[in-house]
Design a binder for these strands. Sequence first.
DNA 1: GAATTGAATCAGTCATATTTGAACCGTAAC
DNA 2: GTTACGGTTCAAATATGACTGATTCAATTC
Lengths: 86, 86
Amino acid sequence: MVLQAVADPIRWAVLATLAQSPRCVCRLQDQIPIAGNLLSYHLKVLREAGLVTTSRRGRWVDYALAHDAPERMRAALPGAQVAVSA
Amino acid sequence: MVLQAVADPIRWAVLATLAQSPRCVCRLQDQIPIAGNLLSYHLKVLREAGLVTTSRRGRWVDYALAHDAPERMRAALPGAQVAVSA
DNA sequence: GAATTGAATCAGTCATATTTGAACCGTAAC
DNA sequence: GTTACGGTTCAAATATGACTGATTCAATTC
């Protein structure tokens, strides 16, 4: 489910953007020029995958990469159970 | 394209199996109980993504994880450009 | 409290990927 | 050379996911 969420160009761009710093949806729209409702749809998929977190700030909703998102993405790759030092 | 290839349950299982050791298609079928032609289709997707390599051995075709597959999968994740020591 | 703004939701359409059944190809065995 | 086996390819059907337009909601501003 995590990989399914990441393996979409739009959602990948969202994650790459949020990996730099949290942003409100309106700023995400500046960097990812798609319809607002479509962006909202993809953000929902990322939310349900637990890869991003949200917090409302007035009229704006800030999105941030979940703290464990990088780890969970790496762990989701096949063969991720090896190559870990105790 | 790499992530698209990995983000499918069947292909994920194929990659996880091949991460242990190379196998011919018939042995893959033992571990992944699906129709032969369907498995062949997914193997083709993995081939085109460059994640697996093949070699014919008599009537059998052996599949193996591409040597750079783990690296390429990790590099395909968003935010993969950071945390690399020169 | 009416209008505006940022964002989310909904139903419907469209595109794409997966699955199926059949036919096909290369190699080996008879 | 014909049969059997491992695997692939093909066309058609199905399912899944992404996109659109319209509506709705919550918070703010006037």
